[in-house]
C-alpha cells in the first residue's frame, strides 16, 4: 500500500492543514512509511472480535440535567484572539 502526494493534499485539506510543494514530498514519504508499517494489522484474523474503544469497556456516564457551572464568559474570553461584546470575532463570512 502506498499513498501519493495528491492524496496527502486532499487529507491535509480535510484537516485544514497546508504544505508547500517542498514539504509535500517529505511528508508523503514519511506518511507512506507509517501506513506501510500499520498495514501488518491486516494479517490478523479478527472477524469474531468486538472492537475495543475503552480499556475497561466502560460506557459514557450520564449526569442529571442540572446547571452546575456559573457563567464565566468574560474570564474565558480573555484568552481569545479577538472578541467584541462577548462574541468571538472571525473574518467576515457573509458579504
Amino acid at each position: 500500500m502506498s499513498i501519493d502526494s495528491k492524496e496527502i493534499e486532499k487529507l491535509a485539506d480535510l484537516a485544514r492543514l497546508k504544505f508547500d510543494q517542498e514539504q509535500l514530498g517529505e511528508v508523503t514519504d514519511r506518511i507512506a512509511s507509517v501506513l506501510d508499517f500499520i498495514d501488518q494489522l491486516h494479517q490478523t484474523e479478527t472477524q469474531a472480535i468486538e472492537p475495543m474503544a475503552h480499556p475497561m469497556d466502560a460506557v459514557q456516564r450520564l449526569r442529571a440535567d442540572k446547571v452546575t457551572e456559573s457563567n464565566q464568559r468574560e474570564k474565558y474570553q480573555q484568552v481569545a484572539p479577538a472578541t467584541e461584546n462577548g462574541l468571538y470575532l472571525v473574518p467576515k463570512v457573509i458579504e
Partner: peptide, 25 residues
C-alpha cells in the same frame, strides 16, 4: 494526517476498527 486517513470513509473499517479489534486481542 494519519488520523484523518484512518478515520476517512473507505478506510475506517480497514484501519480504525481493525486496530480496535486487535487492541482487544
Amino acid at each position: 494526517l494519519i488520523g484523518t486517513y484512518v478515520l476517512s470513509s473507505g478506510f475506517y473499517d480497514a484501519y480504525y476498527i481493525q486496530a480496535q479489534k486487535t487492541r482487544r486481542l
